[in-house]
Design a protein around this nucleic acid. Structure first.
Length: 479
RNA sequence: CGGGACAUGGCUCAGCUUGGUAGAGCGCUUCGCUUGGGACGAAGAGGUCGCAGGUUCAAAUCCUGCUGUCCCGACCA
């Protein structure tokens, strides 16, 4: 419990932090993890925020079953090709071989479309905008806590629209919702971009992504939003009668983010001590440590602690007080620092006399004694805002420092073989580049960013040609 | 799925080369003494050495297989 986090240069920062901060633990099942209360509370915090955003944009929650008939998956050719290898399949139940095998959902496109085809018949039924919070399973070769586990929690939105235009708007709207969530709540800056054909979702016409940069220089796909076109509608015969009385297939989207976001927080915000949580997603924003003395009357100190807690809570700040005796405050300090709690208040007998507390902020590990209790609430509230802002700014600066424009493969090699980070380039679309990236650098085109920065006359990284047809791309090694 | 490393009390690890039936530190329990950044002393509890085989009079130690974890690749949210 009190083991210290390994040095920042350790190659296993992710698991060290996840274990030491008590976010998760390994399960007896390969590739799966147990999400512990501190980790699950972060997920609940993300859920609460995102769920509201999803509802505010006109979606409703529903729930579809865990098991999907295997035949459903096979209805969409590209989809089955993309997912079949990583599906867990139920072949037996009730002591008998099943006549039809069930796939443990790797995503719910197929079963949801099966239902959509029953529910949609008129343009008056559209748009149909659903979301579900669920677990999914993908049998991965190599798993890592939060970033890639065989089972993970996520939300998947699924919508049907009368026109492709409207579906495209939905796709863009939701990827922007994700950007908002990542930047303004998780304090993780992201690039919105389009995936290349080889990287897009199996069965989609187009995939939009939010790409974040982790502190180790690797990129992380943190969320995706797909334009499914009419691929699933055709496979499942999801049709509607238009206002012109014509039978048409619906246009669909799907979009999701997962518990990987907790991995993004871990790998986006940490130091040599451990996790650093943005105040807005921290299970509690302030921890109060009363300095307790054994064999003495601590009631005045404890009362003050609870009083401060109550005062802060009135201002909408979430507070935990750790009143355990028998455990020294030093151990508690360390525990909450490892867990990433943004602000710590320490109150002891001496503070009581002077009407003050000691305050510690996790992001920059600064400590200040003698903070007056008068106006403490406002001070803490502002401090939390400042920490939230600082984390985002710090991550933005880090990303900027670790993004280099590259004109050719040699310049690219320098970036990818040194500190990592994003390489920004122009590309003529030749898939040869993706082959080179994969084989020589274990890297990939993360996206074609919507917000471009390079001048029109910047040359293609592969051919050196200058053309208005060339697209801007972000290249990186990725998780 | 390939390459490497590892698996010994709750945690971190020693012991394995050279086989003789298990240790340390931390944590835990009790008592005392302490107490504003991981205290100290004393006495205790706790392990069929990842699992399954094999070799041997005897296996934590040698051999084989399996499982899991970590790192590096291929695959992917």
């Amino acid at each position: 419990m009190t083991t210290k986090t390994k040095e920042a240069n350790s190659e296993s920062i992710l698991s060290d932090i996840a274990i030491n901060a008590e976010l998760a633990d390994y399960s007896p099942v390969k590739g799966c993890m147990v999400i512990r209360p501190h980790g699950y509370a972060i997920w609940e915090s993300i859920q609460k925020t995102l769920d509201k955003m999803i509802k505010d944009t006109g979606h409703e929650n529903a729930y579809f079953p865990l098991l999907v008939p295997e035949s459903f998956l096979q209805k969409e050719a590209e989809h089955v090709e993309g997912f079949a290898p990583e599906c867990a399949v139920v072949t037996q139940a009730g002591g008998k071989e099943l006549t039809e095998k069930y796939v443990v959902r790797p995503t719910s496109e197929t079963i949801i479309n099966h239902m959509f085809s029953k529910w949609v018949s008129s343009y008056r039924d559209l748009p149909l905008k659903l979301n579900q919070w669920a677990n999914v399973m993908r049998w991965e070769m190599r798993t890592r806590l939060f970033l890639r586990t065989s089972e993970f929690l996520w939300q998947e939105g699924h919508t049907c629209h009368a026109t492709h235009e409207e579906a495209k708007e939905e796709v863009i709207q939701m990827i922007n919702v994700y950007k908002d969530l990542l930047e303004n709540y998780l304090a993780v800056p992201v690039h919105i971009g389009e995936k290349t054909d080889s990287e897009k979702f199996a069965g989609a016409l187009d995939t939009f992504t939010i790409e974040a940069l982790m502190r180790d220089g690797k990129a992380l796909q943190a969320g995706t939003s797909h334009d499914l076109g009419q691929n699933f509608a055709k496979a499942f015969d999801t049709t509607f009668t238009s206002s012109e009385n014509k039978l048409e297939h619906v246009w669909q989207t799907s979009w999701g983010v997962s518990t990987r976001l907790i991995g993004a927080i871990i790998m986006g915000h940490h130091d040599e001590v451990g996790l650093i949580l943005p105040p807005k997603v921290s299970p509690y924003q302030v921890v109060i440590i009363p300095i307790l003395k054994k064999n003495m009357d601590n009631s005045a100190v404890l009362d003050k602690g609870y009083e401060i807690k109550s005062d802060l809570e009135k201002l909408g700040i979430s507070v935990k007080i750790d009143a355990r005796d028998q455990i020294s405050q030093g151990i508690k300090f360390n525990e909450y620092e490892q867990k990433g709690i943004p602000v710590r208040l320490v109150v002891g007998a001496r503070d009581l006399e002077n009407n003050q507390v000691e305050i510690h902020r996790r992001d920059i590990r600064s400590k200040e004694k003698g903070i007056s209790l008068d106006g403490l609430g406002e001070l803490v509230k502002n401090l939390l805002d400042e920490i939230q802002t600082n984390l985002l700014e710090r991550a933005k600066n880090f990303r900027q420092e670790n993004t280099k424009n590259v004109k050719n493969i040699e310049e690219l090699a320098e970036v990818l073989n040194s500190s990592g980070g994003f390489a920004r380039a122009k590309w003529n679309g030749d898939v040869e580049l993706e082959k080179i990236l994969k084989e020589k650098f274990s890297a990939s085109i993360r996206c074609l960013p919507l917000e471009t920065e390079l001048a029109d006359d910047y040359p293609c990284i592969l051919s050196g040609t200058i053309s208005s047809e060339n697209k801007e791309i972000l290249i990186a090694k990725a998780y």
